[in-house]
Amino acid sequence: MEFSERELLDALAGLLAVLGCFTMLLLQRYGTSYGRYSSSSWCWQVPARLAWVLQELPSLALPLLECALADHHLRRAPNALLLAMFIIHYAHRTLIFPFLIRGGKPTPLPTFVLAVLFCIFNGYLQGRFLSRYADYPADWLTDPRFVTGFVLWLAGMVMNIHSDYILRNLRKPGETGYKIPRGGLFEYVTAANYFGEIVEWFGYAMATWSVQGASFSLFTFCVLSSRAQQHHRASQNAAVPAKKRPSKSNSLPATMELQRSKHRVTSEEPRLPATLHNHNSAPPQSCDLRAPPQIQPSPLEL
């Protein structure tokens, strides 16, 4: 039994949702290795600006190619506007955002390759569906689902761009080191840029009202929420003063620390004479050096 392309697109959307959940499990355990967490130990790395342009380009080029080859579907206002929402985001990510980066860290080659593969996969999925197979009623642009989704998409994109602006201007020229961002949505959430993008693609999924848009939104949430948690932990560690952080030499397990404290207390206790360790002996009496002790005669002497 052969699959039609429409059935293939539905199957790819389901695969994207599964990959999103699997990726979230991996990121929760191992974290991400690009951006601020990039390490110089990687042998092959791609410069930050070049990596952003090349990895985001398929999500821009493939939908534009579909626009050139599309049939009557893109002559309908809902299809054209929904695909334009997708293209606008990736036009900004490909042609504007990379050239605003200030000294970004190189991207490890494996991470770069995975990002390229995802953008090819998702660029084909979204572009092909909206340009060939998505059918909407004539009044879809006034439907509450589209209106709500479009407002969320627009608000999320504005939040994302504004948060990126705050991050770019976080340090003055010549400053280095990590700084906690302030202002805008950063007063309420740690990773405001990721929050904005999650809201943006949730609105896109609602506006498209499709399994293709929903799977993309889910994948975005799985990846960006995991990275946001990683940012939050890093921000908490950066907010703790260095004097209050436990050093590695003193970071003993609780049982070892308890044993060491007991040993310290025991070693400081004064040692009593051996005769006083008899549990049956009477407690020692106080001595008066001014008078000799009174010796009581025993019954035999009486």
Score class of each variant (00 low, 15 high):
8 L>S: 10
11 A>C: 04
14 G>N: 10
15 L>P: 01
17 A>G: 14
20 G>S: 11
28 Q>R: 09
41 S>E: 14
44 W>H: 14
48 A>D: 13
49 R>E: 12
52 W>V: 03
54 L>S: 01
57 L>Q: 03
62 L>K: 05
67 C>Q: 06
67 C>N: 02
71 D>N: 13
73 H>D: 07
75 R>T: 00
81 L>E: 03
83 L>G: 01
85 M>L: 14
87 I>Y: 02
96 I>E: 07
98 P>W: 10
98 P>D: 12
99 F>M: 11
100 L>N: 04
109 L>S: 08
111 T>V: 14
113 V>E: 03
116 V>Y: 04
122 N>C: 04
127 G>N: 08
128 R>C: 04
130 L>F: 07
142 T>H: 03
149 G>H: 07
152 L>C: 13
153 W>S: 10
153 W>T: 11
164 D>V: 10
168 R>W: 10
170 L>I: 14
175 E>I: 06
175 E>R: 02
178 Y>Q: 03
181 P>E: 02
182 R>E: 15
183 G>T: 06
187 E>C: 11
188 Y>E: 02
195 F>V: 04
195 F>Y: 09
200 E>V: 04
201 W>K: 01
203 G>H: 01
206 M>Q: 00
207 A>W: 05
209 W>M: 02
211 V>L: 14
212 Q>W: 07
212 Q>A: 11
213 G>K: 02
216 F>N: 05
220 T>Q: 02
221 F>H: 10
221 F>K: 04
221 F>E: 10
221 F>N: 08
224 L>H: 06
224 L>A: 09
225 S>T: 13
230 Q>D: 12
233 R>D: 15
233 R>Y: 12
233 R>L: 15
234 A>C: 05
236 Q>F: 04
238 A>L: 08
239 A>V: 03
242 A>K: 14
244 K>M: 06
245 R>Q: 14
246 P>K: 09
250 N>P: 00
251 S>W: 07
254 A>R: 09
256 M>C: 10
257 E>Y: 01
262 K>S: 01
263 H>S: 06
264 R>D: 10
264 R>P: 00
264 R>S: 12
274 A>Y: 06
274 A>E: 11
275 T>W: 10
277 H>A: 09
278 N>I: 03
284 P>F: 05
299 P>T: 14
